[in-house]
């Protein structure tokens, strides 16, 4: 069998000799898992309780981000959250998924707002889109995605988002208001009477 891997017994690192697409990704994933397992010091991965240390550190970062938001230092806030997300992503891969999911949802919601307020609409859009994909189907998240789209000039897509938001949150004022705004913008873009 052709050797696609080379193993370094000192670092316990595996490196890819096969450079085809996806192979490197898999090798990285393996190394990551090995590192997790080794550093946990356990024989086999134990039940996925999130590490308290990491949680504390992450919380600190989040707090400083929220602080920056209050001071309107959006770039700083974004940086802090991104670091927090990276820190969170270093959790053991076998730690409870739901916990990691909820954590990420919280981060992204914060970051989306920061992006929006610093006019980085495209970044805000993809974050908000991921939030909805993670089934965090709150009215706020629909608003986040929709408003990002409006600011990017994509009025038809925004209208679709607001309409979907209203399916889950019937009569929500902000959604209704923004739906009307998107319809108005569509009519303007088409030269139609509003």
């Amino acid at each position: 069998m052709a050797a696609n891997l080379s193993y370094d017994p000192v670092t316990k690192h595996v490196s890819a000799l096969d450079t085809s697409e996806g192979y490197i990704e898999e090798v990285d994933a393996l190394n990551r898992l090995t590192k997790d397992l080794v550093s946990s010091g356990l024989e086999v991965p134990e039940n996925g309780e999130p590490s308290k240390q990491q949680t504390a550190m992450i919380q600190k970062l989040v707090n400083s981000a929220m602080d920056a938001m209050k001071r309107r230092a959006y770039a700083e806030a974004i940086k802090n959250i991104t670091v927090a997300i990276d820190a969170a992503s270093r959790r053991k891969r076998w730690e409870a998924f739901q916990v990691q999911l909820q954590e990420l949802i919280g981060f992204l919601q914060l970051r989306t707002d920061a992006y929006m307020l610093s006019a980085k609409y495209a970044d805000a859009l993809v974050d908000a889109d991921l939030l909805l994909l993670m089934t965090a189907l709150t009215a706020e998240n629909f608003l986040r995605k929709g408003i990002a789209l409006l600011n990017l000039g994509r009025y038809d897509e925004a209208r679709v988002v607001f309409e979907r938001g209203l399916c889950f949150h019937e009569g929500n004022d902000k959604l209704v208001q923004h739906l009307a705004v998107s319809k108005k913008l569509i009519a303007e873009e088409n030269g139609d009477a509003v």
Binding site: I105, A136, T138, C167, F168, H169
Partner: peptide, 15 residues
């Protein structure tokens, strides 16, 4: 009564 479809209501307390 209007039966709303399933949602996960996430209440953000973050400000």
């Amino acid at each position: 009564t209007d039966i709303n479809t399933d949602t996960e209501e996430e209440d953000d307390d973050e400000d």
